[in-house]
Simulated assay, not measured.
Amino acid sequence: MENSRRTFLKRAGLGVSAALLSPYLFSCQGSKLGGGPFHDLGIQLYSLRDLITEDPLKTLETIRKIGYTHVETFGVDAEASKFWNLSVPELKKVLDDNGLKTHSGHYDMSKYLSRTQSAKENIEKYIEIAHSLGQSYVVAPVTPMDDINNLSVADYQFAAEQLNKAGELAKTAGLKIGYHNHFWEFRSLPNGTKGLDILIAFTEPSLVDFELDLYWIEKAGYSAQSYFEKYPGRFSMWHLKDMDKKFTTPVVGEKYDKTGFMDIMKEIRYAEVGTGAIDFVNIASYADKAGLKYAFVEQDDIYMPNKFESVKKSFDYVQKFLTK
């Protein structure tokens, strides 16, 4: 979700929101908490990127008052060691002051994973920042984005090797590397396999975990359950993201695999968790088989005027239907 994703993922949302805090948001901490990943629910902060850029303190405070217990970061300025103009120690203090933890962060590795880029992101710096925040996972949020329609078996094998190398570095600090999917990792390659299968097969389970985006696997025409059965224990993180019921056509296959990215994005529309086409209750029953540790609500575009209201709606659904 770093600059590469900002460049390529066309936003269809409402732009910068001046979302007003409704009084009901401040009476939500009564939600029961337990020890499971759906009780202790996180949010990927990219969902509220406009708000957290404008006012990180108020945004994080409101997230906690809604009931979220941890956050997944994005968008670090690694050279300055800052998130949204907050230094890493300042961000850690804000999180601590609000009773929030951060177990995972998205860190741009698109050049690091590319066979064609000579300049690479500073993985050691990412690990240092993640360790300072108390995170357990440094997650690659996206593949190299320069030519996603022509990613090859060799490209995915190289990326897997790089993830393993990063995993070795992370291990010295007590962390692991993660990888987050989109739809193109499910395209069929010449040998009949899929990019995600290559990444899973060629990475060491002790070094690399996977963060399955439930929206994107469904939008690719596959089921999360089938991957949990095929690769048990490899999916320690999930993104809970729902699909508009009017936009359920898969975007993987002969019709789409060479289509321009922006044309494909016209087929994409998200929904608050529990209001769309994805059967989260059934998927949640596979949490143990998947190896789930952390679940995050994420919505790439929010169409409601009040974005806090949107993420509260998703939070409430998870607490009502997915907690055990």
Rank of each mutant, 00 (worst) to 15 (best):
K219N: 00
T172V: 04
E254A: 13
I278P: 00
G253P: 06
D301T: 12
I148M: 14
F158M: 01
E124D: 12
Y107L: 06
K258G: 06
Y179W: 11
F26G: 08
L292W: 13
L86W: 04
P23W: 01
K171S: 15
I268A: 10
L189N: 09
G260W: 09
K58W: 00
E168L: 08
T172R: 13
Y137A: 08
Q299H: 10
A130N: 03
A159R: 05
P37E: 01
S4C: 11
Y126I: 01
A284Y: 09
I52D: 00
E272K: 10
W238R: 15
K82A: 03
T275H: 02
N282P: 04
T53E: 04
L86N: 01
I278M: 00
V297F: 01
K165S: 05
R5N: 13
I129W: 06
E185Q: 06
F38D: 04
Y294T: 03
K324Q: 13
K246H: 06
T172S: 12
G276L: 08
S285A: 14
V273C: 05
G75R: 03
I283A: 14
T323W: 05
L214Q: 03
T259E: 10
S226R: 13
G291S: 11
G67Q: 09
F26S: 11
R5T: 13
L214P: 03
L45H: 02
L48V: 14
E272H: 09
K10L: 10
E298Q: 10
V76G: 10
D244L: 05
L212N: 11
P144C: 11
P89N: 02
K219F: 06
L41K: 13
E218C: 12
T7K: 14
F315S: 05
P56E: 00
N191Y: 05
Y227G: 09
S81M: 11
V251N: 03
L175I: 06
A130S: 08
V251Y: 04
L57T: 13
D77C: 12
T62M: 02
F247T: 06
L33P: 02
D96H: 06
V71P: 04
M237R: 15
N85L: 09
L151E: 03
L175D: 01
D155N: 13
I63M: 01
F321L: 07
I283F: 05
G221C: 04
H106E: 01
W84P: 03
V138W: 02
S114C: 07
V208W: 04
L133A: 07
L175R: 15
A166D: 08
G195K: 01
D244E: 04
L100Q: 10
